[in-house]
Design a protein around this nucleic acid. Structure first.
Lengths: 217, 217, 217, 217
DNA sequence: TATGAATGAGAATTCATTCAT
DNA sequence: GATGAATGAATTCTCATTCAT
């Protein structure tokens, strides 16, 4: 169905081929983490349906059955990935205090979509759906939180008269972030595909200003 | 996997089971079109891997085997959908002459992502991948064309000194369009989910101006 | 897990090894019947959990996937078997008018448990459980009907004073039938294992008399 | 497959997780017994194939691996259960000296099939098969012994002229016992399901008389 | 042209068993 | 003695595809 490519780039956690068979006691947490990591990559890049639990287990270098042991099901594993990502992003959202930080955050998240040095595919994973309702709610909850946070940084208050409009604008800022994410995910559209954080900084600042600063003509 | 509902809306000449051979004359094109239409919807909304050829055939009200007859394979059907969409968009891109048209085009395409009155899911389908290389190239080709067209409307010339920067900015405009598309696809993030073309007009104009007008501070 | 023995004895419906690949149109009913027949045998003899859908399909000489096509699931196939058996027995119960017929009916059903000439494993199948509630209810319903029918033949009326006692006695008659069935199922306890209907007739008449005739000392 | 409930009732000395090595002395026999007990219940009620070694271990409150340690395999554990049951029954059979004792013995064994106060599921377990030949032989051996014992109480001698007929009649007595057992196992057929030993006494005496007393018309 | 029937490959999941503490 | 961890084989089910009518 699809090329089951081996990890591209140095996988920080994956056991290198010639590893000792691994100790048997107290390794559960590590195995779990290994699986979570591989799953996150696969799900983000290939989508839920196109990803095979065997792909994930192979990437992680462990037996498939362990996915069910630690996460009950493929769906459970996906949910665990989503929660991880959401935790990261909620934490990050909490720190946003100021409009000026936003471009940086966006470029930080979008510039690394396909990088292998650590999980930078958070936004991409957020766009992947398993069709399950529970995960759908988790996702929507985060998006709501996140857009309100952005709007807040621009002075938004839930009960203000133009509340809706400002929130919509904040969601357009989010849109830019996700748009860049999906376009970069295909690796092939230059110059966007290999733009650095610096390259993106200027244009993103313009966009955020245009949408949220209130200094509109 | 999910309820495979028959077409809701009047199926224009869905071939009734006992069609006399005489009536079958010239129905091929129609059948092909029916399949193409259902496929486009399914692929766009559910993604390639999560869509079943049976879903598509049922939606179209025809026999599954006809998919292979007319399109060789699921992959072939997907490619056909993609080509249809690309043709539409290339045509549309050809008409863009002026920066001012852009917001309208974007809102037109994004406002109707989930509407049922005709195929407005062009952008969404463009983001769906089957993992096949051929379709990957088709997609990238279109994106390139499209972003160059946008850039041109802003005065871009391939050999100008700031050529790359302007193209990048055009691609960020594209990003907004795709970003809105994916966020709206989940139907649940208000107010974006139910924003009308009018609602989007203002903010989008701001963004396009900010990215492409050259009137930057 | 267990020897997947080919059908023992001439299988009335199974396609003999060298059959023509079978016509493709209008054969659904036959295939369904083939599966139902094999399933009934397997489920009755090996039990639900120990039977593999592959065993069944192989016995029937058809592809495994057809089980899901025609019966949705292994469970569905089991339920279909159970219903078949219940229909047969309910019909038969309807004909019981007289205490004297009972020994014959019992010996008829128990003498052939392992015979290959047609499905005589009805009682055995009735004892097999899949753990599903729906089938559990079907089974209990039949047992109730059947024991009331037997009791009726002995003059039972739901509202009589000794109603319960007579019903209990009727259920003990049923018990004999099922007891013989399970003991014969292991094929190895002589002389019971190869007793003929004639051999069983006398003793069964004694039992039925003792339990139901009212000519008790 | 089904809720694997921990022991209900006080687990006599279930080894607490952090048992000091010193306390482990001599616990082997106890652990073995715990497993044997849980296994017997599970196998009897759910059947061999439907029972999971994990179910058993959980019921017993010990680690699954111990099953293989003490009994080599699931099959081995089953055989051990069977042997236990056979020992009990052989012992009991030895005591039968008189026809009049038989009804009581049967009602004693069948009335308690599903009781939780000690292992009264002996007959039920005897009907469960693992498909293994060895256990099959154990089972048949016991049934033979048992039916000969019953017959003996009725004056049976191996070389008498009507030897076969009397043995057959004894096996029908056995059939009643097993029949009641299987019908009661499903708990749902009233009044049989909740009949007491007293309730069964009368009818069983009639049956045994009818089959074995020789006072036949 | 169209369709019902059949197929084989592959998917997720379960389970008995073994290994290393 | 006991346990947590890991494994590989098997099982049910799904799905794209092909055949024969």
């Amino acid at each position: 169905m699809k090329a089951s490519s081996p990890q591209d780039g140095p996988a920080p956690l994956a056991p290198s081929a010639g590893n000792p068979p691994a100790a048997r006691r107290g390794t559960a947490a590590r195995t779990r983490a290994l699986l979570l990591d591989s799953a996150r990559r696969r799900f983000a890049h290939d989508g839920y349906a196109a990803t095979t639990v065997r792909d994930i287990a192979d990437d992680a270098g462990v037996n498939v059955a362990l996915i069910n042991r630690y996460f009950q099901s493929k769906e459970g594993l996906f949910e665990a990935c989503l929660k991880t990502v959401i935790d990261e992003l909620v934490h990050e959202a909490g720190e946003v205090a100021d409009l000026e930080q936003i471009p940086e955050i966006i470029s930080g998240h979008t510039a690394g979509v396909l990088a292998s040095d650590g999980p930078k595919d958070a936004l991409l994973l957020l766009l992947r759906s398993s069709g399950d309702e529970r995960t759908e709610k988790l996702r929507t909850g985060l998006l709501r939180t996140f857009s309100e946070r952005l709007a807040s940084a621009a002075g938004w208050r839930p009960d203000a008269p133009d509340s809706e409009q400002l929130l919509l604008r904040a969601q357009l800022v989010l849109s830019v972030a996700f748009g860049i994410t999906v376009l970069r995910a295909s690796r092939s559209l230059e110059p966007l595909a290999s733009a650095t954080e610096q390259d993106l900084g200027g244009p993103l600042t313009d966009v955020v200003d245009a949408l949220l600063s209130g200094r509109r003509p």
